[in-house]
Amino acid sequence: MTAFDPEAPETPHDPLDLHPASDEDGGAPQAATRKQVRKEQRMMLFKSPGFIIGVLIVGFWVLSAVWPSLLTTYGPDEFVDAPPRTGPSSEAWLGTDGVGRDVYTRIIYGARPILIVAPLATAIAIVMGTFLGLVMGYYRGWVDEILSRIIEAILSIPVILMAILVVFTFGRSRPVVIFTIAILFVPAITRTIRSAAIAESELDYVTSAKMRGESGVFIVSREILPNVTGLVVVELTVRLGYAVFTYATLAFLGLVGTNITTADWGIDVSQNYEQIVRDVWWPSIFPAMAIASLVIGVNLITDSIDKALKS
C-alpha cells in the first residue's frame, strides 16, 4: 500500500505541509511568508546530501576547466618523467598514456571543452525551447500543429544520429557542435514546456486575464512564464546532463574537431580504450570516470532541485 491521505481530496491545500493563513483572524502566527517558503526550499536543498555531493563534483570540474594550472603542474601535451603506459604511480598519479603524457593532467585540461560546449548548448536550447513551447502551448492553432509535427519528426531519430548527420555535413568546428546540440535539444524542451503551457492556459487565471483584455504577450510572459520557471529549471539541469552525454559521445566518435591530440575526455577514451585488453586500462578508464562523474554530479543536482521544488 502506498502512502496517501484520504482527507486530502477534501482540502484544496495540504494541511500538513503548509500553514495557510486562516479565514477570519487576519493575524495567524503560523502563516509563512513567501520568503520563508523560498528559504525553506533553499535550506532543504542545501542540506540534501545529493545536492552537496553534486555541487562538489561539478564544482571541481568547473575549477579544472577555468584554472587547470592550479591543479596540475604539467601541460596537457607535455611528456612526463615516466615511460609511456606507466600505471598509476607517484610520478604520474593516474599513469601515463600510450605516448607518455600524464593522464591526470589530460583529464584536468580535458574538462574545458565539455564544460564550454554542454552549458552553452543547453542555454541556447532552453531559451529557444521555452519560447517556442510557451507560444505554441498558449496560441495553439495551425502553427502549433505544424511545429508539433516537425518536432515529432526530429524526435523520431536519436539525437546522436541526427547530430552525426548534421556535424558531418556542416563541419566539425566547435560552433557547429554547440549549435547542433542546441538545435537538437529544442524539440524535447519545447514539448515539455508546451504541455505545461497548455495546462496553464486552461486555468482560470488565464481566462481572467483574457477577460481583462490583456495581450497575448503579457499573458505568456507575465502570467504563464512565472508558473513554469520551476519546470524550466529542472529541464535545464536534465538537458545539461544529456548535453554532456551527447558531447562526450560525439568526441568519442571523433566528430568534435580534427585534432585528436586535444585534451578531451571523449577523445582520450576513444584513443586509448583498445589498450584495455592489454591491461593498460588507466588512460581510458580515468577519463571515462571523469565523464561518468560529471553526469552523475549533474543528475544529483537535478534530482535535488526537482525534489525541493516539488516539496
Binding site: L18, H19, A21, S22, G26, G27, A31, A32, T33, R34
Partner: peptide
C-alpha cells in the same frame, strides 16, 4: 473584503480557501 494588509504580500497558496 475583510482581508488584512498582511495578506497583500502573500501568494495564493499561503491562504486558505475562503481567503
Amino acid at each position: 473584503m475583510r482581508l488584512s494588509p498582511r495578506h497583500l504580500d502573500m501568494r495564493p497558496r499561503q491562504l486558505s480557501g475562503g481567503l
